[in-house]
Design a protein around this nucleic acid. Structure first.
Lengths: 236, 236
DNA sequence: GGTTTTTCGTGGGGCACCGTACAGACCACG
DNA sequence: CGTGGTCTGTACGGTGCCCCACGAAAAACC
């Protein structure tokens, strides 16, 4: 309910878990960058040149099927990182990564990141655990996308984005939501209209406000809570 | 087309990539086990006690949604391994793993496996790459499950299982296929009937024979080839 | 201030698949 | 040889979403 505009010092939750020396050494090799909406950070199959630790905003991981259909397969904010492949020693991006909600991030050169991985046991351990979380969530998403109706999946997306925006207010049109959920634009209009009718959200021309996130949770599929649990269980 | 019943010395393709000394040391700590159909190797959320390197047969990774709906999210044979989580330092299984097609595997105690991971750079590198492959395939599966029709997904599954069985003949009822694909049993009957009508497969009471795998590939979604490409590209 | 662009609402016809149910065919077992 | 269990074929009404399309309203641009 709180809009959380307290502008807490921008941090990344993965980096926050590192011992001070390790984090400091990593940040020493990093630069703070601004991520603007629709920026393309990775393209599927292409080389990963930098990794990112978001400290605000969110990045969408998108799968494309032979050019036409698109679908979001992951959403990364300050709870995660971009470039998990490098943690596994592969410098190829598995999917398109584009900025959904503008924000900031720590950017590190791929080679420098690899060096740090070698040096820091804590970094390796932390990021490998995160990769595991991503794999679990990915499996969950397969089933979710198959079985759950658009309205529930939309509610889940709204909650996830809200968490990463640290705000009840963010931006996304029905059109882009359709591509995220892998449905028609009209399908989103219908589902969003229903949520608005239930007084759970309010939106107008791309401006979305979450009015009642508890109500939204009730509307969303259990995948939202399941993913949160996975993160908490594995990372602690 | 060849039934490949040549019973080539049972090997695991991941282990085959290791330098001789590393592989020998790992196998020294392993035992050969028989996997029987419907054996449960892992349960979601529970501790992983052993890892497996299949040398025959196939194991199904299954996501369950709040008890009811089931769906296969991965299929592992002699091209892969079970227990990828341990490669990431997590001893918790992300999904249910049960034997689909009986066969054999090398089994290694989790602790011993961890030791080997520490020792062998080649093992680490190889398995981390494999984890990356799994992540890519998982992303593909999300989109596939969302967009592709049952017949195409069934065809893909038949091809994948055929590859892992190293045979055009294997066993699975419409009922179990329904749970794998996340559709009704009647839906499988319909799709399988269509494939049989096209002379691509023949089946009877659970016995499935692939008659024309090139024709099946034409029927299957591009995800089959895409996953093969991913494996080849990343592992080489 | 008028025109274009973006965003959202809505409608009709169609398709893939669902839930359920029943019946025939084949196999195993006593 | 009969009986029961397993596996498969099929049918019917219903639903969620598709494709296509048109219209309205708000914002952006000149």
């Amino acid at each position: 309910m709180t809009t959380a505009r307290g502008k807490t010092a921008a941090t990344n939750r993965l980096l926050a878990r590192l011992p001070d020396p390790d984090r400091r050494r990593l940040l020493g090799k990093s630069i703070a960058v601004q991520l603007s909406a629709t920026d393309v950070l990775y393209e599927r199959g292409k080389r990963i040149r930098e990794v990112y630790f978001p400290t605000g905003g969110s990045i969408s991981l998108i799968a494309t099927l032979h050019g036409h259909d698109k679908l979001q397969v992951g959403l990364v904010g300050d709870e995660g990182m971009l470039g998990t492949s490098l943690v596994l020693g592969v410098a190829i991006a598995p999917s398109l990564a584009l900025v959904q909600d503008c924000g900031t991030a720590w950017q590190i050169d791929a080679a420098a990141f690899r060096e740090e991985l070698e040096c820091s046991v804590a970094l390796r351990s932390c990021l490998q655990r995160y990769v595991h979380v991503v794999m679990c969530q990915s499996a969950q998403t397969v089933a979710c996308t198959r079985f759950h109706v658009v309205e529930a999946r939309l509610a889940r997306w709204l909650l996830m984005t809200r968490d990463r925006a640290h705000s009840d207010h963010f931006h996304s049109t029905h059109e882009s939501l359709a591509s995220i959920l892998g449905v028609r634009r009209a399908g989103v209009t219908h589902a969003a209209g229903s949520l608005q009718h239930q007084q759970l959200i309010r939106y107008s021309r791309g401006d979305i406000t979450v009015l009642d996130h508890h109500g939204l949770e009730a509307c969303a599929c259990a995948c939202y809570v399941a993913n949160q649990d996975t993160y908490a269980r594995v990372m602690n």
